[in-house]
Design a binder for these strands. Sequence first.
DNA 1: GAGTTTGAAACT
DNA 2: CAGTTTCAAACTC
Length: 498
Amino acid sequence: MNEMEEQEHSYRRDSSEGSLAPLHHTHGSPRMAHLISHGMHSEPGYSRMEEPLREGDYTTYRILHPITGDHLSPVAHFSSSYPEYLLTAQSSHYQHVLGQPYSSWPSQEAFHYGMSSGDFCQAATSIISDGADVYSLEGYSTHQGFRHHDGDQPHALLVSPHDQKLPAETSNICQMLQPVQVVCDVTGGGQVVVLNQCSPDQIPHSLMTVVNTDSLPKPPDQSCSIEDHSITGIDAGHSETIVSTELPQTHKTSAGVTFNLTPGPYASQLHQALCPTQIVKQEEEEGQTKGRRRVKWEKSKRPCNCTKSQCLKLYCECFANGDVCNNCKCLNCFNNSEHDLERSEAIKTCLERNPGAFRPKIGSRKQGNVRGCHTKGCNCKRSGCLKNYCECYEAKIMCTSTCKCVGCRNYEESPKKKSSEKDKPDFNIYNPTRSPLACITPDVVEATCGCLLAQAEEAEKEGYTSAHAERMILEEFGQCLTQIVRSMFKSTSVQFNE
DNA sequence: GAGTTTGAAACT
DNA sequence: CAGTTTCAAACTC
């Protein structure tokens, strides 16, 4: 058996126990080594993992308390061979939480604990590496066979993407979830580890830890460290501390196969959607805030004031942030755990309308663009994009050609420009960073129409034929266009040859 | 704090 | 897809 095959067969399911039992340990796995080195922080206050331990045939990763740094039980064993890899844990604590030994779980399951179905939907959506979206979780959370109950309250949720007994809709969901092979709480204290689905030569390339603050002691400051490829917490009311993922890079396996270690594209979104406060803190330190909603959250996590939307539409920023309302001033709020059904339905509706509804509006940073850009662009008409009505401006990013704004002043300009001038929109300036059409401001249109009208009146006054009048108007229109185009090129320092 | 303005979201 | 309405935040007084 060559090395590759050996890797693939390193882990076999131990049917006698109904769990995965690695037959061979992949010694010194560079994959996990990478995961550790790039995905975890070592500073106090951050959730992290230690260097892998070696316990028999398992590759073992001990998860540390995000705040205290203490070891948290259970130890997580990562099996990284396709198609069977699983987080297993051996912990009396875990068994206490689950009421059953973790090791008895079937393979290819994800365990989700302490999160609402809507939360899980968002989490899964955000980390699916191929960009697919989870549209519904109906039936998902009612899969009794994999559910642990604490009285009437569902306490744990196991997800089996390949379980044929799942309801049809759930199966569909799980198919979509397949890229997320494992989503599980490995501590019983609220930590969640997410592993994207791997081929034999891929590592799980997203890994995060979410701390359930209901279960953990709260230190004075629970801020977490966020790297560029940060990930996410779920419910700000319950999940607070997040760790980052790894830096993008490729890695060559011992089998000589190169694979991409780049984090899943939605890993950061998950983080952003679910841990807005911490992200903003970090970004504030970096002198940059991205995204209106995160900026708002950063402002002391201000409560919403919704009165008519029941906080179940994207008008509500709590809802749009993937958060439940907490200490808000809203009326008739349904965005809470007491209305999980309605909330899940609303999430489903939003996602049906717009699969990217819960993705951050401020997209990934372009090369050379430190701040990123608005994914949809703004549509401001009267604010000159210089007030917080403008999502670009509020996110402290410049408008781009994606924007459809009118009279935009939110663009790169000379630092010598007087600050007083910045405060008022200028409808007569062309923004070279934006769409060429952006220069056709209301004033320009009005002036052009005035010119054309004047020509028409002159033709009428002179008694010219309609054909002549039409020609005059067209000629005038041509001159107007010439001036507009000239001004455009003048602004961009491009030669304009008439 | 009330009223107005604004632009995104939702609706038609 | 465009136009209109609804909505809640931003802003002004």
